[in-house]
Simulated scan of single mutants.
Amino acid sequence: MKNAGIIAEYNPFHKGHLWQIDELRRRGAETITILMGGDFSQRGRPAAFSKFTRAEAALRCGADLVIELPLPWAAASAPDFAFGGIYLLHSLGCIDTLSFGAEQADPEWLYDLAALLARPDFDEALKAELALGGSYPAARATVAERFLPGSAALLATPNNILGIAYLRAAAVLGWSPELACLPRQGAAHDAPAAANGFASASALRKALFADDLATLRSYVPSTAFELYCADLATGAVYNEDAFSRSLLTVLRTADSAQFAHCPSAGGEGLAHLLASSAHKAATAEELYTQLKSKRYTHARVRRLALEAYLGIDDTLPATPPFLRVLGASEAGIGLLRQAKTAATLPIAFSLADAGRLSPEAERIAALTARGDALYGLCLAQPRASGNDYSRKFLRV
């Protein structure tokens, strides 16, 4: 292991994430690159803190390089989120190790499941199960259990699901990095704080939004906590009411015909339901409740609403067109020197530079800037737009 890569959201960065970085160092990693989602998360919501704050927290807690996962992949379902992250890590040309946390830390199980999900006969059986009217996750688990007993439990846990998606994406790209599959530390996903010093990111977000800074302080590194407090002091933190108003304003005034082109719409009438529900709901949660059904999970309807809000549609590039650096340490700068000749994508140190690379890059840069403008309205203290184009990468 020389140059390790992690795909993450750090929403927020906490002691479990610090443990992963420290463990990779213990195993011999010379550099650690983070491929991090931006201001909107895979859960279909704005991140608690801006990508710049989260990137700085990662760098000050041991990471060497933070590269942004662009919006269309950062806000996508697990397979597309994973593909975007793996594609960019592979494109750097110098990452030899992929690390991720999983509830099942035996990579053989994950490899077996990844291979199963790629089989044509599995796909046919899944289509037949979906025709019965259930949700995609439930149908996938049912069919997987039929083919490989014991796999349904693995597919019920989010880190395992992402780990399997990473392996499938790497296989598609013909990339075979060394794996550092680490057991998830402490509390399970969406669980309360654990007694051994670790807590889930979702538990920490709940504490943050309840103004419970004592809990936050207990489970995040002190350096990260200082950054979070600085943002809290200026209102640069996500606010649910602000997001609801911004989301519903955009959805009510948008061209609803475009909703059908969102990746999560699926051609199943869900886009029409989103358009009508946006005029009935008074909050984001009411909107999700109206859209939720036996067939459509909360995760899917949140992502659909976010795609329509941000302008993510099926005409965007199929793969990320550039590597945008959010920040780097001195070791990270050294890695970028290697990547200058090894990378298969151009490297940009600002969004403005990225947008000048190609027509596809310009579209992704414009979408990122739109996301920045809308994210500024989702904060406790709204801020002006244009921040993303003017920000230079951070050197720590």
Rank of each mutant, 00 (worst) to 15 (best):
G334Q: 08
L251F: 00
L310W: 07
D241G: 10
G355A: 10
A281G: 05
G269M: 12
L316N: 09
A352M: 08
A343R: 01
T297H: 12
P320M: 13
A343Q: 02
E240A: 15
A331I: 07
T253C: 14
L335D: 03
F322V: 07
E307K: 07
T319P: 00
E307F: 10
G266H: 01
E240M: 08
L273I: 05
C262G: 13
L247T: 09
P359G: 11
A254F: 13
R302H: 02
N239L: 07
S276N: 12
F349Q: 04
G266C: 01
T341R: 14
S350Q: 06
L287Y: 03
P346S: 09
A281E: 07
S244I: 11
L273V: 04
L357S: 01
T341M: 11
R303Y: 11
T344I: 02
S350I: 06
H298N: 07
V325W: 04
T341G: 06
K294Q: 14
P346I: 07
S256Q: 12
L323P: 02
L287K: 02
Q338P: 04
R337K: 15
F259M: 04
T253I: 11
G332H: 04
V301N: 02
A271L: 00
P317Y: 12
A299F: 05
E360T: 10
L335R: 15
H272A: 15
S244G: 14
Y309C: 06
D313T: 15
G355R: 11
I312C: 03
T289Q: 14
A339S: 13
R324Q: 14
N239Y: 03
E330I: 14
A305D: 05
R295L: 10
A354W: 01
Y309A: 04
S293P: 11
S329M: 03
H279Y: 15
L287H: 01
A281I: 10
L357V: 02
L247K: 08
T283K: 10
T315D: 11
A278P: 04
A339D: 02
L335Y: 10
H279P: 05
D314L: 14
G355N: 11
F243Q: 06
R303I: 08
A257N: 11
L274T: 06
Q290Y: 13
Q258V: 09
A284I: 08
A308G: 15
A308Y: 04
H279V: 14
S244V: 11
F322A: 15
G327A: 12
T297A: 08
S293I: 08
I312R: 00
A331H: 12
R302Y: 02
S350C: 07
D241N: 13
T344P: 00
L336T: 08
A305K: 03
P317A: 10
Y296D: 07
S350A: 10
Q338V: 08
H298S: 09
A254V: 08
A282T: 09
A278M: 04
Y288F: 15
F259H: 03
Y309M: 06
P263N: 06
G269W: 05
S246L: 12
L248R: 03
P346H: 09
V250Q: 09
E268L: 14
P263E: 03
A342S: 14
F243W: 13
D241M: 12
